[in-house]
Amino acid sequence: MNDNNARRVVSVIVVNEASVLSRITDLFSGRGYNITSLTVAPIPESKYSRLTIVTSGSVRVIEQITKQLHKLIPVLRVYEHEDMVEKEMALIKFPISENLSDINTICEAYNGKIVNVGENVVIAMVSDEPKRIDNFLCAVKRYNPKEIVRSGAVALER
């Protein structure tokens, strides 16, 4: 990870209103920056929502984007995470013919389990640090996952 391609996690608290998401993502796309993942949900009992954005790029540009985020009228706060707890969830569909007890055991190592059983497939859920989710997905490759969905990271500063 060199200076020009640092991974950054930014949380943004915004007024929950139309168009606020595009205001935020425009700041990234306008600079040709990719958003690795983005999650949004309303903050309970408030008019605000919290976004967690994972991106990578030059530290300088990301700092600039953070300042510009502050400048947006509906933005209340911006956190550039340094020391955080970060989690992500993934759902994975496996053929029912695979070794389900192996799959379940591996899932347990990543805070998960099989959560749904259908006629032909099972769905497993895990939740862990994004890096560990990467590892998990590697480990279960041999069970022929048919579909994978990741939630994107959420983070809280310690």
């Binding site: 139309a18 168009s19 595009s22 205001r23 425009d26 306008g30 009228i73």
Partner: peptide, 16 residues
């Protein structure tokens, strides 16, 4: 219009 003006205004509104 608000999609276009977003990047060249300090702020914008679509009144509904």
């Amino acid at each position: 219009a608000v999609g276009i003006s977003r990047s060249c205004t300090k702020h914008n509104y679509l009144v509904t």
